[in-house]
Amino acid sequence: MPQMSPLNWWFLFIYFVTLLILFSIINYYIVFYSSPMSEKNIFHKKSLNWKW
């Protein structure tokens, strides 16, 4: 099996790093996170009426 030249290894490394960065960017922008402030923060307080 012939050996790869150092330049080919460098291009292969750059190729995979570029793919990783593009994949990360695409995943970051494709997922829509709902912000916690957008949801209504209504807490229903349960009132307990103790009748002794």
Rank of each mutant, 00 (worst) to 15 (best):
S38E: 11
F11S: 05
K46W: 14
P6V: 04
W10N: 03
F43Y: 12
Y15R: 12
I30M: 07
K45I: 12
T18H: 09
S35M: 13
Y15L: 12
I30T: 07
S35R: 15
S47H: 12
F23D: 10
S34K: 14
I21E: 00
I26V: 04
E39A: 15
K40F: 12
Y29L: 03
P2G: 05
K46R: 15
K45Q: 12
W50G: 03
L19K: 03
N8C: 10
K51V: 07
N49E: 09
F11E: 02
L22Y: 00
W52Y: 05
I26K: 01
P2H: 04
Q3S: 02
I26Y: 00
P2R: 08
N41G: 06
N41W: 07
L19D: 01
P2V: 06
T18N: 09
L48V: 11
N41L: 09
S47E: 12
W52L: 03
N49K: 09
I26C: 01
W9L: 14
L20F: 10
F16W: 13
M1D: 04
K40D: 12
L48N: 06
F32S: 11
Y15E: 11
N49A: 06
S5E: 10
S24M: 03
S38H: 10
Y33A: 07
V17H: 02
K51S: 11
I30E: 02
L19P: 00
K45S: 05
Y29V: 04
F32C: 05
F23K: 14
W52F: 00
Y33H: 11
I21A: 05
W10E: 01
N27D: 05
M37H: 15
N49M: 06
M1F: 04
Y15S: 09
F11Q: 07
F11R: 09
T18P: 00
F11W: 04
K40E: 13
P6H: 05
E39M: 14
K51W: 07
S5V: 07
S38K: 11
Y28A: 00
N41C: 08
Y15G: 03
F43K: 13
I30L: 06
F11V: 04
W52I: 00
I25T: 03
V17S: 08
F13G: 05
Y29Q: 01
L48K: 10
N27S: 02
Y29I: 04
L20P: 00
K40A: 15
M4Q: 11
S24C: 03
L48W: 07
P36G: 02
